[in-house]
Amino acid sequence: MRQKRWPGRAGSEQAQQHYLVEPRTLAGGGDLRHVSAFLRASGWKDQSKADGPLLLDSPDRLVRIVYDPYVQPGGWTIRGKATAHQEEWWAILGQQTPVEIVAGLTDALTQPRSAHAPNVWAPLQEQDWNRDRSNGNFTATSPDDTAWMQFRTGQNGDANWWAAARDEHGNGWHAAFSASTPMRLLQSFAAALASPEPVMRPRGRVPYSTKIRTTSVSLLPSQLGAWQQARLDAARAAAWARNWNPSRPRATARHAASGDRTFSHR
C-alpha cells in the first residue's frame, strides 16, 4: 500500500483517510449518491419511499432505475420501455458492482446519442483486454483475469450480454443485459468497466484481496464535497443546456442552472 498526502488547506477541518483502489472492478459497491444524486441533478424524478428501495424515473418516464438492498441477492435493476425505435430492454447489476461502473451506464442515459455507431468492444481493446470466441460466445477478459464481459447465445437462440468480476476468494459481482439493451449504453458501461483509473473508498470499506492495490490519501471533507459538487454542477449544466429554450424568460434559466446544491444522502 502506498501513501499520499492530498494538497489542500487545513483550516479547522480534520483530514480523513481514504484509499484509491485498483482495479476498480474489485473495489466494492461504494456510495450510491455517485449514481442517484447525478440523476436527480440531471432532472430524474426520485420516486423512493421512506425506508424503501431507491427508485428513479427518467424525465420522459421511459426508463426506471431501482436499487433494492432488501431482497436477495439485491442490487440494481434498470428497465427501458419500448418505443417506436427501441425494443423494451433491461439490465441487472449485482449489489457489489462499483457505483463508478454502474454510472458508466446510468450517466449515459442522460446524454445525447452520438452520431458515431457504438462499438462495445472498442474500450476493452483500448485497455488491452484479451478477446476470445468459442461456441458462439464472444468474451473479453481483463489483463489480470479478474473481470470479463461476454456476448453469448443460448441453446434456444436467445442472446444477451453479461459481465462479472471475481477476486481470489470468489467475491465479486455480475451484471446481465438484454440483447435489446442499446449499444451506446453497453459501450459506456464497457468503458467504465475497463477504465484503469482507481476509485476512492473510505477507510474500512476496502475489500480484502491480494488482487487489490491501494494508495492511502489524506482528504479534507471540503475537498471530497467539492469533487462531488462539481459532478452535480456538471449534470445540472448539461440538463439546462438540453432543455434551454431561447423564448423562455431568463429567470427560468437561472433557476434551472442553480438547483439544490445539497448533496443528498441517497
Rank of each mutant, 00 (worst) to 15 (best):
A163Q: 10
P23C: 10
G204H: 04
I65S: 08
T153R: 00
M1H: 09
D60P: 06
Q14P: 04
G170S: 03
T215Y: 00
Q14H: 07
S178Y: 14
G157N: 02
D233W: 05
I101Y: 08
Q96A: 11
P73D: 06
P246E: 06
P69Q: 03
L109P: 04
V120T: 08
P69H: 05
A163G: 09
S209A: 07
R250M: 09
A175E: 11
W148V: 00
H255W: 04
G75P: 09
A164K: 06
Q187P: 01
G11F: 01
K4T: 11
A176K: 14
A179Q: 12
D57Q: 14
M1W: 14
S247A: 08
R131N: 04
R205A: 10
P249L: 13
S188H: 15
P182M: 15
L109V: 01
T181W: 07
V71N: 01
F189M: 10
G8T: 12
T110D: 00
G104E: 05
R2A: 12
S12R: 10
R61T: 08
E126P: 01
A190L: 04
R79S: 09
S195M: 04
E13F: 11
D57W: 09
P112D: 03
M200C: 07
A163Y: 04
Q72C: 02
R242Q: 15
T210W: 01
L224N: 06
T83I: 09
W240C: 15
G154A: 14
V66S: 07
L193H: 07
A108V: 02
K81N: 12
P59H: 03
P112V: 03
R266A: 13
H169D: 09
P7R: 05
A256W: 11
I65P: 02
A239I: 13
W162T: 03
A176D: 10
V71E: 03
S216A: 14
D132N: 07
W89G: 01
D145A: 11
W121L: 15
L124I: 10
V206P: 00
R266Y: 11
N243L: 12
D233L: 04
G29P: 06
G225C: 07
Q17F: 09
T25N: 14
R133Y: 05
Y19G: 12
G29Y: 12
T215I: 08
L219W: 00
A165F: 15
M183P: 03
S114D: 14
R254V: 12
G28H: 08
A41E: 02
W121R: 10
